[in-house]
Design a protein around this nucleic acid. Structure first.
Lengths: 234, 234
DNA sequence: CGGATATACGTAATATTTACGTTATTTTGT
DNA sequence: ACAAAATAACGTAAATATTACGTATATCCG
């Protein structure tokens, strides 16, 4: 029977298990990290895994992803973006399951440590990701690539930092995502020329004797600029 | 019950109808077009719609999309890319259905007219898209936005043209996607500077008395350049 | 053969990116 | 008290890319 045959539509269609898996990125002031979990169900119970769940009830996929993030990190209003669908027929030996992977960016500071421990979770550096269940390593790879492309043209990197941050920290964030060093003088020039940061008169002295001024992202300004055709680029 | 509860995993999970919908782009030498179909099932039977089908059997989502495209256009090896998932609980009054939208780029020339007619399909200009069923208008909007961003940095526009094409045609293609006019002298300079086009000694005289040289995309060259860190940009 | 039309090639001004030099602030050690 | 050390902050020139145009060429048609 062809997919486009119309004889029995809706009545006898095949229903499928739908899951959501979340690639959770964090930044610990030096390196980009990934939050991984010990899988709680068979098959592969106890192995490292992305956090995920089956979609049920009347939640949209996106809402299901949000709920998973809240349940495992205690955070709401997290940056969340759909990555792609993983649907190879045999990707999960437990059953035919398609998974719609999402990635999210969180500020490690805001983070609910207790929740994380309750869920047997651990932060991993990107170059130390262990073998993960199913096709989760591929998901991570795809998510990192997506993040690399996206942070350049969308001001989403700020979600990985606390509300107030220094320019050297912002630079270090981009370096850890791009995996290459940037020239601090040019970085500073480029980011400041976009006029989407608000400079405060406070300094963070945790990284140097001189201290670096704290800035915050000016979302309102960015939204206005965006309507005028401005494109973020760093 | 929480999504992440593990008491009954796999056994009593909720299965969901999964569909694929395809946004099919074409280019008729002047304008970007969309292939739309008359819906063949209730609800909304007879209304304009994207082509789609439920996912069944052991096909991956991507393979299901490919098969739909083959059945409706007679074309194989079409450029196809996942757009995003549409999953509002009430998006389809027929049942709870999530749809994973894909967009594809085809060369109208290669096209099997009989197939299209068999499926009650019609090409529409982008500014003349009728009301579509369900959330299909939103899918189209999202697909157009995605295409606009993607053609700038990936050499995918060539999929909308015949194998051999003139530079003015390529420019017209980009103009119809970006919806703004480009300077032909700068366009030519920029595309040729990337060394991914092969110039032939043949001319197409259908658009002018002088005729314009035919070029084709050098995929092998592009793949080599890509490994060297080159990024397409137009 | 001259005008019309679209194609093809060229150049100067402007803007952006890159590479690197210099100054400033503060702590620490002598 | 002051020099050394470390990071942050500011600046400038060269190289590269983009933009805005001017001009030449091939062909058809009247």
């Amino acid at each position: 029977m062809k997919l486009t045959d119309t004889a029995h539509m809706y009545n006898v269609q095949q229903k499928i298990l739908v899951a959501v898996d979340c690639i959770i990125f964090g930044f610990d002031t030096q390196n980009l990290k990934l939050l991984l979990f010990k899988r709680k169900v068979d098959p592969f119970k106890g192995d490292w895994s992305l956090i995920g769940a089956f979609v049920k009830g009347n939640l949209s996929i996106n809402d299901a992803a949000k709920q998973i993030l809240f349940e495992t990190t205690g955070l709401k209003d997290i940056y969340l973006d759909e990555l792609k669908t993983y649907s190879d027929y045999n990707r999960d030996p437990g059953d035919r399951v398609i998974s719609i992977a999402h990635y999210s960016l969180i500020s490690i500071n805001d983070f609910d440590i207790e929740k994380v421990e309750e869920f047997d979770a651990k932060w991993f550096n990107l170059d130390e990701i262990p073998d993960l269940v199913l096709d989760h390593n591929q998901m991570v790879k795809d998510a990192v690539n997506r993040l690399r492309k996206k942070v350049k043209h969308q001001p989403i990197g700020f979600n990985l930092l606390p509300e107030y941050f220094t320019l050297p920290k912002l630079q270090r964030l981009y370096e850890s995502i791009y995996q290459r060093e940037l020239d601090s003088r040019n970085f500073r020039k480029k980011i400041l020329s976009q006029n989407i940061l608000i400079k405060t008169d406070k300094k963070d002295k945790s990284e140097s004797k001189k201290g670096a001024f704290l800035y915050c992202f000016d979302k309102d300004k960015f939204d206005i600029l965006k309507t005028k055709g401005y494109n973020f680029d760093i």
